[in-house]
C-alpha cells in the first residue's frame, strides 16, 4: 500500500486528516482504557514491531517473478481488534515517517487513515466479522481475509487519490489517477488477503485461543445492527459530501483538472508576492522594463498561470541567478560552520 508523502499533500489536507486521525485515535484509546486490560499495551508494542519486521519478509509471487510483502493493517485488526489495531498501525507509521521519511509527519494523518481506518473500522467489523460470524474455519478465514483486504485496500487507494487531488500538487487527472491506482491496489489487495489468511490460519491452528480471545473481547463483535447502519450512513454522508463538493467545483464532470481543484485560496498568495516583488523591483529599478510587461501579460492569461511567478523571462533569469547564489551561499555557510566546528574540536582535543 502506498504511503502518502509530505511533498504530495497540501497543509489543509494534511491538517484535516491529522485532526480526523487524532479523533479516531483518541476514541480508540478511550475504548481501550475502558477495557482495562493493561496486558494489551505490551502486546500492541511488540506486535507493532512484528508487523514492522514482517513487512520486510519478501516472498516470491508464483508466476510473476515479482515479490510481495505484508502490509499488516488487516492482521492487526484481526489479532488485536479495531482499537488496538488502529493505534498499533499509527505507531508503526510514526516510526516509519520519522526514521525513514516513509510517509511524513504532515502526511501522517493521511497515512494512518488510509492504512488503519479502513482496515480496522470498516473492513474488519463489517466484512471479516461477517464472514467469521458463525465460528472460525480455515475457509472462512480465507474468505474473510481476502474480502476485507480487498475492500480495505480499494478504499485506501481511493483515499490516496482524493487526498492527492485535493492537495493539488500533481497534474494527474482524476480519472487517470483512479484508473491507475485502483487496479494496482487490487493486485496488492489480493496479495495482502493471501498473506493475512495464511498467517491467521497458522495462528488459528497453533493457538486457537489467541483468535478466540481477540474475537470475544471485541465489543465490536456484538455490535447492534442499528449502530452498524448509523456508522455506515455517516460514512456515506461524509464520502458523498466530499464527492458532491468535488463535483460542484468541477462542473465539467469527470474532467477534473487539478487546475481547478487546487483551490483559489492558495493562488492568491503568489499574486501578492508577485506584486510585492514588482514594487521592490520598481523601487530599486535594477531590472529592465520588459519584465513588467511580461508580468502583466501573464496576469491576464489567468490565475493558473500566475501560480508560477517565474514564468516571465525577466524574473526567470534573475530567478536562476538568485537560485544559484542561494544554493551556493547555503552550502558555503554549512561548510564554514563545519570548518569552525572541526577547528574547535581540534583545539580542545
Amino acid at each position: 500500500m502506498m504511503h502518502m508523502a509530505d511533498a504530495l499533500i497540501s497543509p489543509a489536507v494534511g491538517g484535516t486528516m491529522l485532526a480526523t486521525t487524532a479523533g479516531v485515535a483518541a476514541y480508540s484509546i478511550k475504548k481501550l482504557q475502558n477495557e482495562l486490560d493493561e496486558k494489551k499495551i505490551p502486546l500492541m508494542g511488540v506486535m507493532g514491531a512484528f508487523v514492522f519486521a514482517a513487512q520486510m519478509i519478501n516472498f516470491s509471487i508464483p508466476g510473476t517473478g515479482s515479490s510481495g510483502h505484508l502490509g499488516g493493517g488487516m492482521l492487526l485488526a484481526i489479532l488485536l481488534g479495531p482499537y488496538a489495531g488502529f493505534l498499533t498501525m499509527a505507531s508503526i507509521l510514526l516510526i516509519q515517517a520519522l526514521f525513514f521519511g516513509d510517509g511524513g509527519l504532515l502526511a501522517f494523518g493521511c497515512n494512518v487513515f488510509n492504512l488503519g481506518f479502513y482496515t480496522c473500522f470498516i473492513a474488519y467489523p463489517f466484512i471479516y466479522k461477517w464472514f467469521t460470524r458463525k465460528g472460525i474455519t480455515s475457509k472462512r478465514i480465507f474468505a474473510g481475509s481476502m474480502a476485507s483486504a480487498l475492500v480495505a485496500l480499494q478504499l485506501g487507494a481511493f483515499s490516496v487519490v482524493l487526498e492527492t487531488l485535493l492537495s493539488g500538487k500533481t497534474e494527474l487527472p482524476f480519472e487517470k489517477f483512479v484508473l491507475l491506482m485502483q487496479p494496482i491496489h487490487l493486485a496488492i489487495g489480493i496479495v495482502e488477503g493471501l498473506v493475512t489468511a495464511a498467517i491467521i490460519t497458522f495462528v488459528w491452528r497453533a493457538r486457537p485461543d489467541i483468535l478466540e480471545k481477540a474475537a470475544n473481547e471485541e465489543a465490536f463483535g456484538n455490535i447492534s445492527m442499528k449502530k452498524v447502519l448509523t456508522a455506515l450512513s455517516i460514512a456515506v454522508v461524509v464520502v458523498g459530501g466530499l464527492f458532491s463538493w468535488f463535483a460542484s467545483a468541477n462542473p465539467d464532470g469527470l474532467e477534473w483538472s487539478i487546475e481547478k481543484t487546487a483551490g483559489t485560496a492558495e493562488l492568491e498568495a503568489p499574486d501578492g508576492i508577485h506584486e510585492t516583488l514588482s514594487e521592490i523591483q520598481s523601487k530599486t529599478a535594477l531590472l529592465p522594463d520588459y519584465d513588467f510587461k511580461a508580468s502583466e501579460n501573464e496576469k491576464t492569461a489567468g490565475q493558473a498561470e500566475n501560480a508560477w511567478p517565474a514564468v516571465n523571462a525577466g524574473t526567470s533569469v534573475s530567478g536562476i541567478v538568485g537560485g544559484a547564489l542561494t544554493l551556493a551561499l547555503a552550502v558555503f555557510t554549512g561548510w564554514v560552520i563545519m570548518l569552525i566546528k572541526r577547528r574547535k574540536i581540534k583545539t580542545t582535543a
Binding site: 516583488l277 530599486t284 535594477l286 531590472l287 530567478g319 541567478v321 538568485g322
Partner: peptide, 9 residues
C-alpha cells in the same frame, strides 16, 4: 532568490 538575483543582475 529572485530578489537576490534581480539585485545582482
Amino acid at each position: 532568490p529572485v530578489l537576490i538575483g534581480s539585485l545582482f543582475t
